[in-house]
């Protein structure tokens, strides 16, 4: 069976600073992988390389055996064309820490924009799909509200609906609860848990340890640009093999 995601020896530099120093990661279809680690460890950067929001200088990323972002022509590695990269970005969906909803569009129009302009669906088809997903995240009643009229948790749920409606193979979540007030965190985590139950493949960068423990079938602990440790959360969180992870877990709160 081909892997859904295959990252090999991923290297990423900002100028002289190397933030990813050779990361490998595999995911099969239906996997829910949580990436944990202190800030600056490279977890968000890794996520953003997968959909080419960041360039990377070494290594390969494959989704369903298709190489992402770069191609090798005559021994020279070069960036793929922008149009090709735009198409490859549809293999994944992403939810951001800051939601990034389009403020001038209603919740419904936020979701339908990509369906109409990228997937070329008719307005009616797009609306049907968008309404289905807004209902799934519990916001159908607010579909005509603008982002500014929604709470942070509601905005994030719309943002997740916007990403999932495009029917990606893999969902990327980048610290989606970090900008939320504590009482709004759970409604967003619940949506992600529901998606996990449906068998959605997800790669989740998070600081919510209890959530990672409950939802992930594998956890990756990143440390200084490398994978420090990975495995089943039930083992990792109880008996960490490395001192770094033990230390990290001690400073994290399980709530």
């Amino acid at each position: 069976m081909t892997k859904l995601l295959e990252i090999r020896d991923l290297h990423k530099r900002y100028g002289a600073t190397e933030v990813l120093k050779g990361v490998d990661c595999d995911m099969a279809k239906g996997d829910v992988v949580c990436v944990i680690g202190s800030s600056g460890s490279g977890k968000t950067t890794m996520l953003r390389c997968i959909n080419m929001l960041e360039e990377f200088q070494g290594g390969t990323i494959r989704i369903n055996d298709e190489e992402i972002g770069y191609e090798t022509v005559g021994g020279m590695r070069r960036r793929k064309r922008e149009r090709e990269i735009a198409r490859q970005r549809l293999l994944t969906g992403m939810a951001f820490q800051q939601f990034n909803l389009f403020p001038h569009l209603t919740a419904l129009d936020n979701v339908t924009l990509g369906l109409i302009k990228v997937k070329k669906l008719s307005r009616a088809e797009a609306r049907t799909i968008a309404e289905r997903w807004l209902e799934r995240v519990g916001l159908l009643a607010r579909k005509d509200h603008y982002p500014g009229q929604l709470s942070g948790g509601q905005q994030q749920r719309v943002a997740i609906a916007r990403a999932i409606a495009m029917n990606p193979l893999l969902m990327l979540f980048d610290e989606v609860t970090s900008a939320l007030d504590p009482e709004l965190v759970n409604e967003v985590l619940q949506v992600i848990k529901d998606l996990a139950r449906d068998g959605m493949s997800m790669l989740i960068v998070t600081h919510e340890m209890r959530f990672a423990y409950e939802v992930a079938n594998r956890v990756i602990f990143m440390n200084q640009g490398r994978i420090g440790e990975e495995g089943d959360p039930r083992e990792m969180f109880v008996t960490p093999k490395t001192e770094r992870l033990a230390e990290f877990l001690k400073t994290s709160t399980f709530r």
Partner: peptide, 27 residues
Amino acid sequence: IPRGQTEAAKVIGLTFHQAFIYVLAPQ
């Protein structure tokens, strides 16, 4: 306009041209 707007447009597959017309210009 925050950079996140362009990124959000990119990840739903909009090309730069489309992102400009439907996301950046109206704002």
